[in-house]
Write a protein that binds this DNA or RNA. Sequence first.
DNA 1: GCGCACTACGTACGCTGTACGTAACTAGGA
DNA 2: TCCTAGTTACGTACAGCGTACGTAGTGCGC
Lengths: 235, 235
Amino acid sequence: MAGRPAVPQVIWARPERTGRGPRPAFSRADIAAVAVRLADEGGLDAVSMRHVAADLGCGTMSLYNYVPRKEDLHELMVDAVGGEHELWEPSGDWRADLRRVAHQTRELMRRHPWLPRLMSPVYGFSPNALRFLEHCLACMDPLDAPYGTKLQLLALLNGCVTTYVANELATAERTRALPWSEEQENQVRIAYLGGQIASGAYPRMAAAFTEDAGPIDLEAVFAWMLDRVLDSFTP
Amino acid sequence: MAGRPAVPQVIWARPERTGRGPRPAFSRADIAAVAVRLADEGGLDAVSMRHVAADLGCGTMSLYNYVPRKEDLHELMVDAVGGEHELWEPSGDWRADLRRVAHQTRELMRRHPWLPRLMSPVYGFSPNALRFLEHCLACMDPLDAPYGTKLQLLALLNGCVTTYVANELATAERTRALPWSEEQENQVRIAYLGGQIASGAYPRMAAAFTEDAGPIDLEAVFAWMLDRVLDSFTP
DNA sequence: GCGCACTACGTACGCTGTACGTAACTAGGA
DNA sequence: TCCTAGTTACGTACAGCGTACGTAGTGCGC
């Protein structure tokens, strides 16, 4: 009715097996694992329906029986690596626990550099995302605040971690597909930037870049950021 | 030499006009304006080399004389809307000024919902980005801290704003291309989520969703987040 | 045992970014 | 002043993408 409106579907609401017909040759976990491996090895661009199907050993269009749209494949991938989160018994110190969560998330994203680009609040309802959220809320049990506030803090924290790691990884991930090296690219960019700064139009930027700073300790900056966000939270 | 290594280029280092040959029919600003309009109207997917060229009124491949790679087109777009930032004389209250910057950035992203997806630190050296950074640093002149620290705070602030707005916009932007309505999609997702919560496996999530919360005030949450990040900063 | 819902998959369409070749044009050096 | 080298303009072509559709074949529920 109404033409062909294509009923919307959340892939998690679909049963993996309905009973009728031949038994499926693969599980969702199989498919997600293949897609994750492809993305880890060749970047997100290497994850195409054709590649995943070929790696699984089936025809391209067969994959559509398991994954109706490519976006659902992405959702499977995010959920699959979300399962790598280690969940522990909360210690009673919610700040320490959330710090640990954040560091773990950062490690997860460094293992799977494509993850930040796929992160989206609409994926927040996958099975492993629900387990993760529940765990974070459990860590915050000692904190006396409404759940709404806790969820806001979690969103803020995860947002900061995501952008931080995305920035960390942006250049590397971007460079992967380029025909020239990262140093070459950086050299050109720095040369251009140097010219702009030398023009005198941006005195503070110039000062910032000539400032005697020493090498940046990414770990320290990350920890600094976490402290900013967590320690400031006094409900 | 060395085969065809294709020398890397930052588009800003290329002069718009070299002197030789016929005078170009368009300026970079023209091209950026067209691309931005297309993205505003039809989402980022509507920005293809063919569409932009057609809208400019030239052949597809002619566009490559102005924009060597599609990524450069994105860089042009980010820079162009960066020019919409209103820059003012710093008030002396750096927190208030940065708050104003953040609100402006949010408005900018709501006008151009594709912006968060294109935001990347490698675009940070475009002309308008330099102007913007210089302005932010000027706002922070009353703050006694090394420029390195100021830049970290700026990165943190911009990161939070970006993810916050990205989350705000994700569903809307995502829904644009779907053949079914946003309510339909949400209904399906909520129904599924309700089933999961009712299973009893996620007691805190269940409590969070049954909590008497009232409607979320996105403005208030945004302001709350800014206060968290800014007020916590005591060098 | 019948029928139907499912799996499997080849073909095809429209779209993408862009490499390459060719023709027209114009400014700088002789 | 003319020549020529570097640019602009653009059509063609290719490889790859997501996926709609049609056609077999399979096995569970009735």
